[in-house]
C-alpha cells in the first residue's frame, strides 16, 4: 500500500510537471537574455541572470497598456450583453411551452457548434456595409450575438432545474412575466451567471480571429492582435515574445485563479466550449 502510494505520487507529479513545463519555459525565457538562450539552450533552467527589461521592451513597443484597456472595453460589454440577452431567451425557452420552442433551441445549439469559418465572409461584409467595421461596437455586437448560442443553452439548462412550482405560485400571486423573470428567476440563476460570465470573459478576452477581421486601427486593437504585431516585429527575440505572451495571458490567468470554482463549474455545466 505504502509503495503504491509513492508510485502514485511520482506518477501524478510527473504528469503535472509535464503539463506546466511549457509555462515554466515561457516564464524563464521571458527573463533571459537572447545570448543565454542561444548559448546554453537550457530552456527548462531558470535564468542565470534575470532580465526584467524584456517586459519593458514588450510593454513599450507593443503598446500593451493601450491594448489592455481596449480589451477591457471590448470584453466587458460583450460579456454583460451576452449574459443579459441570453437570460431573456433562456427564460423563454425554459418556462414556456410553445410551438417553436424546440426548434429555436436547436438553432441556438446548432449555431454554437458550427465551424465559424461559415460566418467569416458575410459578417465582415455586413459590418462594413452598416458602418460598424473598425469600431468597438462592431466587435462587441458580434461577440454578443455569437455567444448567444452557448449562453442560451447554458442558462436554459440551469433554469430547467428550478422547480416550476415557484413559477406557478408567482403567477397565481399575479406577478407579470417580466417581474417573474427579474425578481424570481434571475436571483436564482445568479451562480450560473457568475460561472458563465467568467467563462465568457476568458473566451472573449482570448479572441483573435474576429478582431483581426473586424478591426484595423491600432487605437482599438485588443491585446491578442497587439501580441501578434509584437511577434511580427521581434521574430527572433524569443525573450521579448515570451514577455509579451505573459503580459497577454496574465489577466485571464488571474481571473481563473480567483474564480476557479466558477470557471470549472461553467465548463462542466455548459458541457461545451467555444
Amino acid at each position: 500500500m505504502k509503495v503504491k502510494k509513492i508510485v502514485f505520487y511520482i506518477l501524478a507529479t510527473a504528469i503535472v510537471a509535464l503539463w506546466i513545463a511549457p509555462f515554466m519555459i515561457s516564464f524563464f525565457t521571458s527573463f533571459k537574455s537572447m545570448d543565454e538562450l542561444m548559448t546554453t539552450r537550457k530552456w527548462w533552467a531558470p535564468p542565470k541572470e534575470w532580465f526584467p527589461s524584456n517586459f519593458v521592451t514588450a510593454w513599450k513597443d507593443a503598446n500593451m497598456g493601450r491594448y489592455f484597456m481596449n480589451t477591457f472595453v471590448i470584453t466587458i460589454p460583450s460579456v454583460l450583453g451576452a449574459l443579459f440577452l441570453s437570460s431573456l431567451s433562456a427564460y423563454a425557452l425554459s418556462w414556456y411551452k410553445f410551438k417553436l420552442s424546440k426548434f429555436i433551441l436547436m438553432i441556438f445549439v446548432g449555431g454554437m457548434l458550427i465551424p465559424f469559418q461559415m460566418l467569416l465572409i458575410p459578417v465582415y461584409r455586413f459590418s462594413v456595409s452598416i458602418g460598424i467595421y473598425d469600431k468597438f461596437i462592431g466587435v462587441i455586437l458580434f461577440h454578443i450575438a455569437f455567444q448567444l448560442g452557448f449562453c442560451t443553452f447554458f442558462l436554459r439548462n440551469f433554469m430547467k432545474t428550478i422547480p416550476s412550482s415557484i413559477f406557478d405560485a408567482a403567477m397565481i400571486d399575479g406577478a407579470g412575466h417580466f417581474t417573474i423573470y427579474r425578481r424570481i428567476v434571475m436571483p436564482l440563476v445568479l451562480p450560473a451567471l457568475a460561472a458563465l460570465g467568467i467563462l465568457e470573459f476568458t473566451w472573449i478576452w482570448n479572441d483573435y480571429l474576429w478582431s483581426l477581421i473586424l478591426i484595423q486601427s491600432d487605437e482599438i486593437k485588443p491585446i491578442t492582435l497587439g501580441l501578434v504585431n509584437l511577434q511580427g516585429q521581434w521574430v527572433t527575440s524569443w525573450n521579448t515574445m515570451a514577455a509579451g505572451a505573459i503580459i497577454a495571458a496574465v489577466v485571464p490567468l488571474f481571473v481563473f485563479l480567483l474564480f476557479q470554482r466558477y470557471f470549472i463549474e461553467g465548463l462542466t455545466l455548459g458541457s461545451v466550449k467555444g
Binding site: L212, Q216, S217, D218, E219, V228, N229, Q231, G232, Q233
Partner: peptide
Amino acid sequence: VTVNTFAHED
C-alpha cells in the same frame, strides 16, 4: 495622421 502597423504576412 494615424499609422496602423500590421505584421507583414497579416
